[in-house]
Amino acid sequence: MGLCEFIYEDEGAFAVNIVKELTTHALYIRFELGLGSFMDEACRSEGIHRANAICRSVFDPEDHVIFLHHTSYSRNEKRVSIVRLKRFFKTRLRQQLSSSVLPYEFGESEEDLYTFEWKAEIKAKEIRIPYVLESIENLDFRRKPEAGGQIYLYNKTKGILFHMYDDRGCDVYSSDKDALLPLYHKHRKWILDYNRYQIDNLFGEGLAGIIETDEEQKARRKSNNKKIVESGINLRQINTCCITHYFEIPLANADIFAKELAFTSFEIERVSKTDNRVTFTAAKTEALAQIDYQSHLMSMYGKKYGAYIGWSCVRGD
């Protein structure tokens, strides 16, 4: 049974909570949009560019789309009676718009909170997608236009849910792995590095099948903790660092290693070369508190192609 058949009965006469169903049970790819400071216009433009490119890959003009706008309230809070939805569409909405009350979307145990959903079923070409994405980008920064809530775009034709959660990134969900595979291939470089190992394994490519043993994990984390202590950096305070990872790769694997690491957001450099070995570095500026995922990801590349030597850091704040 396909996702559309599971969610809908009688061509949309009855529907379960689409967002809840997909975000809880479906497969997904998480893409990184935000790069650096939101106030840096070049970084902001790159984020919008990425979001638009991903949307173009998800939605064809004639696809049937369910536009979902969510706002959450407490039981004692007065709900906004009018949400300016028409600005998100190129055509005038008539009978397509409906509303419903849903359980609070950010937690099942929040009995005093609920989510109000506006829903419109239209074609993709009728949505002002660039405007929608810009509105989401601005949501946390008091910059207009702004979305006024969470927006989800469900491609009913393809069974894909697109959710740009804020300026930092977006998730694309589907119960059909084959529906996501073209996105994985086309936008692989934008996959969030934190989730890259998991997503590679989902599609059986990249680092799929490269496993860290319990002993290797224990040794890696012990080494990480020792280096953090030696650095004197307090992870409970601002701890932005330039973290550099070191590799020794057999010459025969050097080019393919460099090509695969180029899909990440790390800066790759060939440091030295001998007759049979190449030394590489991979650097990224990020909170040192993220070293567990970084060292795991980098050590898996080292294990696949050669040897991972370790990492160093320089405070960047």
Rank of each mutant, 00 (worst) to 15 (best):
Q198V: 07
R315W: 05
F59S: 13
C4G: 03
D193E: 07
D40F: 04
M298Q: 14
D292Q: 14
C170F: 09
D193S: 03
W118D: 11
L33Y: 08
D193N: 09
G34L: 09
L261G: 01
E105W: 07
K90T: 07
K189M: 07
S135L: 06
D10S: 13
E117I: 07
I129P: 01
T91Q: 09
K90Y: 09
S231M: 01
L261Q: 03
H69A: 06
H49M: 13
Y194W: 10
V83T: 10
N201E: 15
I256N: 07
I243R: 01
D112P: 00
R221T: 10
S295K: 00
E216W: 08
I151K: 02
S265E: 10
S81Y: 07
A51M: 06
N234Y: 10
A26N: 13
T213W: 04
Q96Y: 04
N155M: 09
H245K: 03
T115H: 08
T240P: 00
T244S: 08
I54F: 13
K78Q: 14
D255F: 10
E267R: 11
S72G: 06
C170G: 04
T244M: 02
F6A: 06
R128M: 10
S295Q: 12
I54L: 14
K78M: 12
T264M: 04
F88A: 12
W311L: 07
G2H: 12
L22P: 01
G310P: 05
N239C: 10
Y104W: 14
F257M: 15
A147I: 00
L235Q: 12
G302L: 10
S72R: 07
F6L: 10
R188A: 08
I7E: 03
I7T: 02
D10E: 13
S312E: 15
E110W: 10
R50H: 06
I160N: 04
S299T: 02
I309E: 13
S272W: 13
K186P: 03
G204M: 11
R315D: 08
G2I: 05
N224F: 04
K78L: 11
G47E: 02
